[in-house]
Amino acid sequence: MSRIHSPAAGRMQTIARNPAMIALFMTLALAGCASKKNMPNNAGDLGLNGGAGAATPGSQQDFTVNVGDRIFFDTDSSSVRADAAATLDRQAQWLQRYPNYAITIEGHADERGTREYNLALGARRAAATRQYLASRGVPANRMKTISYGKEKPVAVCDDISCWSQNRRAVTVLGGAGM
């Protein structure tokens, strides 16, 4: 396939810009793109930020590293996958343990859709995430949502491994949504 060269070039640029992506692509290389279960869900899975246990319990870092601040979605889907549900269960427990935090759930889409539809799709993912957290006991009045559609990707390349990282809902402590 003619694609063989260009993704590599895309990855090189990404790697140069974002150290976190080095570990990500190493993980992908080991696990293979098709295996969703092995997708890293947070910086902790990547072995970054000093690793588990280094963060003060109840801190932002604790949430990001030990709980996992984001979940991923299948193409054109807003269904919460089994691996994502496990992350959200941890989020719900943590948010109940630390009830002072309000959160904003940011919904995102990959670039393989049109701008306007993706704004709605990101909103749908944020809403699905909020509903799941509510079903696990997080009070609705602590949660806001916002959709950025495809406008704020975290990974840049031109293949599936990268688009899957952008189809996400990120739980931000504080944050500003509607």
């Binding site: 807003s78 704004l119 709605a120 909103a123 749908r124 809403a127 509903q131 959709s147």
Partner: peptide
């Protein structure tokens, strides 16, 4: 225009 409410617009 579209209005988004929960998962629907």
């Amino acid at each position: 225009m579209s209005l988004q409410q929960e998962g629907n617009s």
